[in-house]
């Protein structure tokens, strides 16, 4: 019996259907081709950690975004597409150093980060504050008021809060070391619980 048109088409679809391995190999080839041709404007990967799945993204300049799962990885990538470039690929190679240093940090074995950073996602006073934050040492905490004073704008306490809340690089730019004067942990991009975990971890390893 002659097969029907549907059977022929179905068979053709079946026979040309790629395996996951084929697609993964082609994806890797695309990543290296894009890197070679200077078209990998943003490379990203995810990293499973004790504070949840983290999205790590980097431009050729440096690490540009770290997003907690609660912030939404997809939303973070869409924001990068709009603000930096839509030439975005999941390409873990560029994030090797960042992933390793973050893992070391979360394991308590690293106190400072040695990574090139790209502050393309922030501007003006917010960026000034964010660039200041890494000078707050491991295990130390500042109040929002103190940060405002340190960056030379003592009245801008609320703006310091906004700068911390919109920090595109949490963990590496340690906004978790800035606390409200009330003594509470305060808000955090990764949730108050993640902030407590980081602060507790830094206190413990500092006390050792």
């Amino acid at each position: 019996m002659r097969p029907t048109e549907d059977q022929v088409v179905h068979e053709l679809q079946d026979r040309t259907s790629p395996s996951a391995e084929s697609m993964a190999a082609l994806h890797r080839r695309l990543e290296s081709g894009a890197e070679r041709d200077g078209m990998l404007d943003v490379a990203y990967r995810t990293l499973d950690t004790a504070v949840g799945s983290l999205l790590l993204a980097a431009t050729p300049t440096g690490l540009v975004r770290i997003a907690y799962a609660v912030q939404g990885h997809e939303a973070a990538l869409e924001a990068l597409a709009a603000a930096v470039s839509p030439r975005i690929l999941e390409a873990p190679g560029r994030l090797d150093d960042a992933a390793r240093e973050i893992e070391e940090y979360l394991a308590g074995g690293r106190r400072t980060f040695d990574l090139p950073l790209d502050f393309a996602l922030s501007h003006g006073f917010r960026q000034t504050v964010q660039r200041f934050l890494p000078t707050i040492g491991y295990g130390q905490t500042y109040s929002y008021t103190r940060v405002a004073a340190e960056v030379g704008n003592p009245k801008a306490v609320r703006a310091v809060g906004s700068a911390c809340a919109t920090n595109p690089l949490p963990l590496v730019v340690p906004c978790h070391r800035v606390l409200p004067a009330s003594g509470s942990v305060g808000r955090y991009a990764g949730g108050a619980e993640a902030k407590s975990v980081l602060l507790a971890m830094e206190r413990t390893t500092t006390g050792r």
């Binding site: 040309t16 084929s22 709009a82 999941e90």
Partner: peptide, 20 residues
């Protein structure tokens, strides 16, 4: 309107384009 990250294009259309 902002463009989607290109990765979504690869995910959504990569297998079909390979079939073709």
């Amino acid at each position: 309107p902002p463009k989607a990250p290109f990765e979504t294009v690869v995910t959504d259309h990569g297998p079909t384009v390979l079939r073709v």
